[in-house]
């Protein structure tokens, strides 16, 4: 272990680390996902192996014969990022037992929300249940952005996507998103958390905790997508901050059954419409006659936030 861990973590101290995700990848201008992944990789101290589910991040960072990763990285298919990582981790344990590997290593599986919430869900659930010592990271942009903005089960209520287009008949996605971080916490994983790239310190600390946890860990990280969210290329960090301030994406962690809210905006809590307004995918929510949708969205967010606070009360500290 390096000695930098005892010192307070600052951007200056982090800046000595080599970027493990290089420039020259083909992610869109202003995409949130590479910001998230750069921060995740800054937290890694040991040699690391990554697996990646199909998605924007996978196709755009690894266009043959180029790879933007300076670490071993593997893609197999859409549905099995977690299964691939669990296989690699099992092989590592076997080789370690035989004395062929001496080093401590980390294993991180990455997926977008489509590859995590929907298509990769069974392999993720299986890997977490089997207890592999690996971290699964879902960068959540709330739709299948890679194939052209189709709805996923992470898409928020009311969002306009190509498979639930907002029009006269259907006002965007009729269902609410599912809360995967809580589903993962229900797997009794060693560590489950939600993070946001605007709070880099919280994100990096959580990745360090997750990698140090003795067992499987899961992190959901919000990753704004300006193409799918229909916003500007420069507001990825602003929108991730707003999502946290509006309690749409609360920062919390579940460590061995102990629930902790890491950031409570208290009286600075923003109404959800502040987060929805800059996003073109929610434009129709502000049209006359759709006030009920804004109200329903707010009610859903408030109910989730209240129940999270109750969980902290009941199972915190």
């Amino acid at each position: 272990m390096s000695t930098t861990q005892e010192k307070p973590m600052t951007l200056k101290s982090l800046s000595h680390k080599k970027d493990l995700l290089t420039g020259g990848h083909r992610m869109c201008s202003g995409c949130g996902a590479p910001i998230v992944l750069r921060q995740v990789l800054l937290a890694v101290e040991n040699p690391v192996v990554l697996t990646n589910a199909t998605g924007c991040l996978e196709v755009s960072t690894c266009l043959f014969p180029f790879t933007a990763w300076r670490v071993p990285w593997m893609h197999s298919a859409f549905e099995n990022s977690a299964a691939t990582a669990s296989g690699i981790e099992t092989m590592y344990r076997a080789l370690r037992k035989k004395g062929k590997i001496k080093k401590e290593m980390n294993f991180i599986a990455i997926g977008g929300d489509g590859g995590t919430y929907d298509i990769g869900f069974q392999s993720l659930s299986g890997a977490m249940e089997r207890g592999h010592k690996m971290l699964y990271i879902c960068y959540d942009n709330g739709a299948y952005m890679n194939t052209g903005i189709q709805r996923s089960s992470a898409t928020p209520f009311g969002a306009d996507t190509t498979t639930c287009p907002a029009g006269d008949v259907v006002p965007g996605k009729p269902q609410r998103r599912k809360d995967l971080t809580r589903i993962m916490a229900a797997h009794n994983v060693a560590y489950a958390a939600q993070a946001s790239p605007h709070n880099w310190k919280d994100l990096i600390t959580k990745v360090k905790k997750a990698l140090a946890a003795d067992g499987p860990s899961y992190m959901g990280i919000i990753a704004p997508c300006n193409r799918g969210w229909r916003c500007q290329t420069n507001d990825a960090i602003q929108l991730s901050k707003l999502a946290v301030d509006a309690c749409f994406w609360p920062l919390y962690e579940v460590e061995g059954g102990k629930w902790t809210i890491n950031y409570d905006p208290k009286d600075k809590k923003r109404p959800i419409k502040d987060w929805l307004k800059p996003q073109g995918r929610f434009k129709h929510l502000f049209a006359p006659g759709n006030e009920w949708m804004l109200e329903k969205f707010q009610q859903g967010v408030d109910a989730d936030w209240e129940s999270l606070k109750k969980l902290q009360e009941a199972f915190g500290r």
Partner: peptide, 19 residues
């Protein structure tokens, strides 16, 4: 198997022209 042996070689690919 189509593996890429030169880690991080995307650095040689220039995306500055997108700007």
């Amino acid at each position: 198997a189509g593996t890429i042996l030169d880690a991080g070689n995307a650095h040689t690919y220039k995306t500055g022209s997108w700007r």
